[in-house]
Design a protein around this nucleic acid. Structure first.
Lengths: 247, 247
DNA sequence: CGTTCTATTGACATCATTCAACGCCGGTGG
DNA sequence: CCACCGGCGTTGAATGATGTCAATAGAACG
């Protein structure tokens, strides 16, 4: 159903393909995408404090969302791929709350805020899509939180690789062989680890024939073993550390 | 401006007070609150997998949002106080993605999904408020992520206390003396620490006259010292660990 | 073709967890 | 009224996972 009216293959997996007017004039209540932009690796789409005047949808490439503290420390909150909507952080204060930096040459569709508000007013489908997207992001953040505080280093990395794998698969790419567009430093920052730890663990997993790494190219050789990594230690924790249901 | 039409004092700090029709019939495009509910400590408002059919606004008391893995491990993603909107996780899959458990006797306002959708269709202010709330939650989650991976145990706890203090102050309560409605176990889980570590740090802070703790009652004796805790170690990290702006 | 960024690997240090013992408090039942 | 019990909280000692520091080498880019 989603794909019916979409002619551009890169739009196929966009969360807004069913409301986008880019490729079709048959949806008068949809979102009008005003322009497209191409950005180089390392460049920013917006930064903390910038005026919030548009939402963007990743059309190709990849990007990272970073928080920066006053002290100059950064925290990567998420990675984005084609079809992901970015910029939703701006509604809170009408300024962007984080930076969006591209990890490789990428393109985005821009939706001006005025146009967005018009579409929200006129179309129930647009409202539904937006709420769904934001809700999904919220739940995703919570799962990252879970991973980063319940899992050990190896489990976090396994989880990270499995998540990437799933996202590539959703986009019609290979779930077992893909490219990391981010550095080890970025991965480590995202997972709350030292980058040396990430490097060591990737080597270890390769030794154990669980994965194969060559620079940024990753192959998952034994995806079941990766999944089992996430379960290890769970039964041990079951007895202790149980929190107060009735405090 | 927000408070002008609000007669009930407990609504004063609600994010939806400007669109709520509970206390006034003068806002025909606002949200109709259909009912109120009172819940006991330890009881749940909704659980993972429950059908999503309403949003709720905390009216009094406090609650926690928990993710539960299949293995039975839980992760507390946030704590909620009067005025907070909860249930927004449901838009993603039309089922709730986490549990909401009350930490003390609490009451909530219920907004049925049908009524919510009507208000979203009809009122720009409602749309604005909802987007703002969700965006705020998103940014808040990211800050928790930052705290839990960039800060050490003491900094996380200091940050936690300062955040609570700010939230109480926003609600017109004392910023320097307040009650913890959650257990040490809950705090530790939220901060990604062992509960013994939280207990030890609270004792240490008390020894250093930074705070005073008596069971659940906390006084911030030296709030500047707490704030400085967050800066400690920042300059050391500035040189190293800088991630790739241009990967 | 050299500089800079990224990545790997080893040795060592340390912060936080784990395990354990114990006290406190509120509730419940004899 | 007192004894018991379970959940919560505190504190100590030992262990270990991960961070830190350091040396080196390969890629990328101008």
């Amino acid at each position: 159903m989603k794909q019916l009216l979409v002619t551009n293959p890169t739009c196929q997996f966009c969360s807004f393909s069913n409301v986008c007017e880019k490729d079709s004039a048959q949806k008068p209540l949809g979102l009008k995408v005003k322009s497209q932009q191409v950005h180089q690796r390392g460049s920013s789409l917006f930064s903390m404090g910038d005026k919030f005047d548009a939402l963007y949808i990743m059309r190709s490439g990849s990007a990272k969302t970073c928080l920066l503290s006053q002290e100059g420390e950064q925290q990567i909150a998420s990675f984005h791929y084609a079809g992901d909507i970015v910029g939703l952080d701006g509604f809170d204060t009408e300024q962007h709350a984080h930076n969006l930096t591209f990890l490789e040459t990428s393109s985005v569709c821009r939706i001006g805020l005025v146009e967005f508000n018009r579409a929200m007013a006129e179309s129930a489908i647009v409202r539904q899509s937006v709420l769904k997207s934001m809700s999904h992001l919220l739940v995703g953040e919570q799962q990252v939180l879970f991973s980063n505080s319940q899992y050990n280093a190896e489990q976090r990395l396994a989880n990270f690789l499995l998540n990437l794998s799933a996202r590539f698969e959703q986009r019609g790419l290979s779930a077992l062989r893909f490219n990391l567009s981010m550095t080890r430093i970025d991965i480590a920052n995202f997972l709350g680890l030292a980058f040396e730890t990430v490097s060591r663990l990737l080597s270890k997993m390769q030794q154990q024939k669980t994965i194969n790494v060559n620079h940024r190219q990753v192959s998952l050789l034994n995806i079941d073993k990766l999944r089992q990594t996430l379960l290890c230690g769970a039964e041990a924790k079951l007895s202790t550390n149980f929190s107060s249901q009735a405090a």
